[in-house]
């Protein structure tokens, strides 16, 4: 009976020691686990931010590109009009040109020759005649001035595109932060592996997860994805002309 009790006490002692060790290990693991659980939402938030950032940046570049396309279409139209006027030899000063001339300060010689009121009156008469004939802004000088204004605007848009592309810098900064977080999580996972002595068992079944599947899909797409010309060849075999 005494021998059985001694053996039982020894077993209980071992069990208490094992429980104590396990509790201490759990305490040690608690801190990294707690840190990781707070860092993972942070990482996810960073990733969501990246998506938003790249989307906004891309939209801005596309908006400016669309404005450039519209502006170029207008310039092309204006130059076409100018070419048509030149071809017909009908380049008369339009009402807008006459008004512009009238707004210019007269030279001392002009001042001597003409009273400014007479000059303005003459110009306005010419402008009125031009407007009656529907010539406002239709001479080559006006068309070219208009085109130059469009080009000046386009220069500003091109600069804005360059500026908008700076979102890449912001993305790079966030990627750097994410890399730091991932390295930190990796280090803490290693600590857990050391604390619990987790070991990879040979032949153990692979853990199936969505992430594993996606990784496999990515690897597969890298290895076997087709180019457009191969797609067209296959489509041809199916009777697509």
């Amino acid at each position: 009976m005494a021998e059985v009790n001694t053996h039982l006490y020894a077993e209980l002692g071992e069990l208490a020691k094992y429980l104590d060790t396990t509790l201490r290990r759990l305490d040690e693991a608690g801190a990294p686990l707690s840190n990781m659980s707070s860092q993972m939402p942070q990482a996810a938030s960073h990733l969501e931010g990246l998506t938003k950032l790249t989307e906004e940046g891309t939209h801005e570049v596309m908006r400016l590109t669309e404005e450039l396309q519209d502006s170029h279409a207008l310039i092309a139209g204006s130059l076409g009009k100018a070419a048509a006027i030149l071809a017909k030899g009908q380049n008369l000063p339009c009402a807008a040109c006459v008004l512009r001339e009238a707004q210019k300060p007269a030279t001392p010689a002009e001042k001597q020759a003409l009273d400014s009121r007479q000059l303005l009156a003459g110009a306005l008469t010419e402008a009125a005649n031009g407007l009656t004939k529907g010539q406002s802004g239709t001479c080559i000088a006006c068309i070219l001035i208009d085109a130059r204004q469009h080009l000046t605007q386009d220069d500003k848009r091109l600069i804005e595109i360059m500026t908008a592309l700076s979102f890449q810098d912001l993305v790079a900064q966030r990627v750097k932060k994410l890399t730091t977080i991932i390295h930190d999580v990796e280090r803490k996972l290693l600590e857990l592996v050391v604390v619990f002595g987790v070991q990879h068992k040979e032949g153990s079944p692979e853990v199936k997860s969505e992430a594993t599947d996606m990784l496999k899909q990515l690897e597969a797409s890298n290895a076997t994805s087709m180019k457009q010309n191969l797609v067209d060849d296959i489509l041809g075999k199916f009777g697509f002309s």
Partner: peptide, 24 residues
Amino acid sequence: AEAQQENLIEAVKAGVSNYIVKPF
């Protein structure tokens, strides 16, 4: 972006009119 041969064949069988892979 689905540029696998089986995707293309699946699309043809489903009645696609034509097929473009990204980037295009």
